[in-house]
Amino acid sequence: MFKQIFYTFLSFFSSRSRGTAMKNSDCLSSSIAVMKYSGVWMPDNLTHGGRLAYIVFRYVTQTVMFFFIILAEIAYVYKHRDDSERMVDAAVLLMSHLVQAVKLMTIIVRQERIKRLIALGDGPAFTPSEPQLKAQLERAVKLTGLVGNLILVSAGVTAIFWFVVPALKDVLTLPLKITFPFDVKGQYIFAVMYFYTSLSVVISGVGDAAENFLVSGVLTLASTQVGLLHEQLLNLKGDGKQDKDCCYKKAVLCVKFHQRIIEYVEEIAKIFGMPIFCQCVTSSIVVCMTVYKITITQEPVEMMTMIFYLMCVMMELLMYCFPADVLINKSLQISDAAYPEWSGDVRTGKVLLLTALRAQRALVVNAGGMFRISLPTAAAVVQTSYTYYALLQQKLKKE
């Protein structure tokens, strides 16, 4: 799997050096490759038999490597329900895995809609013909793809730390806090279970990063398209005293482009609203428990692992909130750029006025229809995490 990701990473940049036409979705290629080889993302152009074989592959990999682990973690929490410290220790990954299950099922169930969304982003409506705007879009795609690869690498490093730490302790334990319905203390069975849980940590960790970046990538592409619309409107104002018919046609195209972007963002919110909601709600709890573990651990390697994990959790939150916040700010700038303050054609002015009025409502992604995603949302999550942390400390001190 990692070999395929590496080759995808190289081909992403080598294709540009050969002059191959870049797709807007190229920034998502590594994430899609991870999901494809872990059984989440069904490849295109499969035969009927190939689709059935892939469904079986998906069922085996996700059930064995992911859902069995969740059941074992739930069993551990239930077994130690009277021990608050052990429950906190186990609940860190359990909460993350439960949210990942929501993302996983969303991508599997709504995969055709997601593919249509990506195809729409690759279509001519979102690919400008002007050299300046096209170059701006390509730079954004390259930068987004690079960030996505860095996120996948950081998730892989964190996963490796997670299963290496138990091997450095005096008493070797499994990487995860789990309970199985059979004895795993035997020499051979313990080695098998250690390898199994370690592989599960890597697959689920990198897979979770890929699923998160899929949402972040489409949000980033949406904000980039809004930026292109802003440039087109400014250029239109500069041409306002020239050919009136040409300006009118360009203004109509800008209105249609704006409407397509609105529909694109609304579809993102409909598809990914619930996973984003679950991620924001549980992030405050996960951050609280992770910070608590960092403060009580006495082992430097374990502390480093938890710090890496905390960075990944915060990165997950920012992968949703930052591009959504950029989208909000850029969409509000459309109103100023579209306002017809130049002395051009009256027809063009009316068209731009409609665009300016519509752009006064920001393009937002609501998490489950409850609250909008933005950087203030991330700040609120961190603030809530600190409140939970203070309450957790007080409760454990009393015990």
Rank of each mutant, 00 (worst) to 15 (best):
S15A: 09
S17R: 12
M22E: 04
S38M: 13
M42P: 01
N45V: 00
R51N: 06
L52A: 12
I55R: 14
T63Q: 01
E73D: 06
Y76E: 04
K79V: 00
A90K: 03
V92F: 04
V102M: 12
E112L: 05
T127N: 06
T127G: 03
V141Y: 05
S154K: 10
A159D: 05
V165M: 03
A167G: 02
F182L: 11
V184K: 02
M193E: 09
S200L: 06
S204Q: 12
L214W: 12
V218S: 01
L221Y: 11
T224K: 08
L229M: 12
Q242W: 03
D245R: 14
C247D: 01
V252E: 12
I262T: 08
Y264G: 13
K270W: 01
F277T: 02
V281H: 02
V286A: 11
M289I: 13
I294H: 10
I294E: 08
Q298N: 10
I307P: 11
Y309T: 08
L310I: 04
M314V: 08
E316K: 14
M319P: 00
Y320K: 12
F322Q: 02
L327A: 05
I328N: 01
S331V: 13
P340M: 14
P340H: 06
G344D: 08
L357T: 11
L357D: 08
R361Y: 02
R372E: 13
L375I: 15
A378M: 12
A379E: 10
S385G: 11
A390H: 00
E399L: 13
